[in-house]
Computed example of a mutant assay.
Amino acid sequence: MLKSALAIFTTLLFTVSGISPVQAQTASTNTKKTSSKKAPVKKAVVAKRPVTHSRVTKASLDNREKLVRKVTVVKGKRRVAYQRVSAAPSMPVVPPVMTAGDLAGLNLTQDPLALKSNVALVIDQANSQVLFEKNSTVALPIASVTKLMTSLVVVEARMNMEEVLTVTDDDVDREKHSSSRLRVGAQLSRDDMLHIALMSSENRAASALGRNYPGGLSSFVAAMNAKARSLGMMDTHYVDSTGLSSQNVASARDLAKLVVAAYQYPIIRQYSTDSKYQVEPSGHALQYNSSNRLTSSKDWDIGLQKTGFINEAGHCLVMMTRIDGRPIVMVFLDSKGRLSHVGDATRMRKWLTEDGQQNLTRVKMVRADQG
């Protein structure tokens, strides 16, 4: 009786839920079967990393992208693919700086010593004999060799050398933007300004010397040009007291005359050939060194010298020296390389010795035989 009542209740329940007793029994049976089976255990699959070989095959036409060939090996199968990638920006090619001498074609001039200077002149001061000459009449920018005329004008003006001069904003180089160890407001005597301008080519010192001339810088430049004319330097022209302007020009012939004139003053000889000098602008000690390493060499006997460099002029050097007891004037302009003018002076000195002359004679004889 209890089983009959339970059967009636079950029938009513399935009737209300919309499921027939047969469907319920079938679902129950399937559920038992499913639950009795164990779920398969999935094995973890470790994917192998693909082996990739890449190389650049060619660049695109605009040079901003490159086509890269990639070879990938996955599960033993080799796959090839091509991909465009951005190329690393290339460094801009900086063209070589052309000096005024190069633009004039002076670099095409050959000489027996293969000098790096486009212009050279060597004179025996004892008898004014020209020993070596190369493009010596061409007027070129002379850079800080200008300061040799600056010193000559200052010395001949006989101004108070102990007068204290102040570096101002007007002395700051706004043309080449060159650096200086003398800050605006620094104070030095005229004597110290002249010393470091000659020895170390201090631009602000040279500017202060010209600016503190009676009448100012314009009067000083006029005095420089007047002095050049009085020395017979007809290919020479100055526009400032520093040489930073490429409009300061002269020929090697003219500069040889300037060297001889400046050599007459002991103060110019001493200051230009000192290898070291210390100044104290506004009480702060500064050690300056010569711009010409030959002044500290025991192999050289230099009585006067001045170097110079700007891009338009190349490296320049003028000297009064003694070689085998002879007073020799050397002028080198528009030399290529930081120490090339010094190297040219060394080659020239060797050539002027007896051994050098003998070697040159032998070279000429060989060339004559080959010709």
Rank of each mutant, 00 (worst) to 15 (best):
V71I: 14
T72G: 00
T72W: 07
V73Y: 15
V73N: 11
V74C: 03
K75G: 12
K77F: 04
K77R: 13
V80I: 15
V80S: 10
V80D: 11
A81P: 00
Y82S: 06
A87F: 07
A87P: 06
A87T: 11
A87E: 13
S90M: 10
S90I: 11
V93D: 09
V94N: 12
V94A: 12
P95V: 10
P96N: 10
V97C: 03
V97M: 10
M98C: 02
M98R: 14
M98D: 09
M98A: 14
T99H: 09
T99R: 15
T99S: 15
A100Y: 09
G101W: 00
D102K: 15
L103H: 08
G105Q: 09
L108M: 09
T109H: 13
Q110N: 13
D111L: 04
D111W: 01
P112T: 09
L113R: 12
L115M: 09
K116C: 06
S117M: 08
V119Q: 13
A120V: 10
A120E: 11
A120F: 10
A120T: 08
L121T: 08
V122K: 08
V122A: 08
Q125G: 08
A126N: 13
A126M: 05
N127S: 11
S128R: 14
Q129W: 00
Q129C: 05
V130C: 07
V130M: 08
L131T: 03
F132D: 05
E133N: 14
K134G: 02
K134D: 01
N135K: 03
S136A: 15
T137M: 07
A139Y: 03
A139R: 07
L140V: 11
L140E: 04
P141C: 06
P141R: 02
A143L: 01
S144I: 05
V145H: 03
V145I: 15
T146E: 02
K147N: 07
K147D: 02
M149E: 01
L152Q: 05
L152T: 06
V153Y: 04
V153G: 03
V153W: 02
V154F: 05
V154R: 11
V154K: 11
E156I: 07
A157K: 05
R158A: 15
R158H: 15
M159W: 00
N160V: 00
M161C: 01
M161F: 02
E162L: 04
V164R: 09
T166H: 01
T168D: 01
T168M: 09
D170M: 08
D171E: 04
V172M: 00
V172I: 01
V172P: 00
D173N: 02
D173C: 03
E175W: 06
H177V: 04
H177K: 13
H177R: 12
S178N: 11
S178L: 10
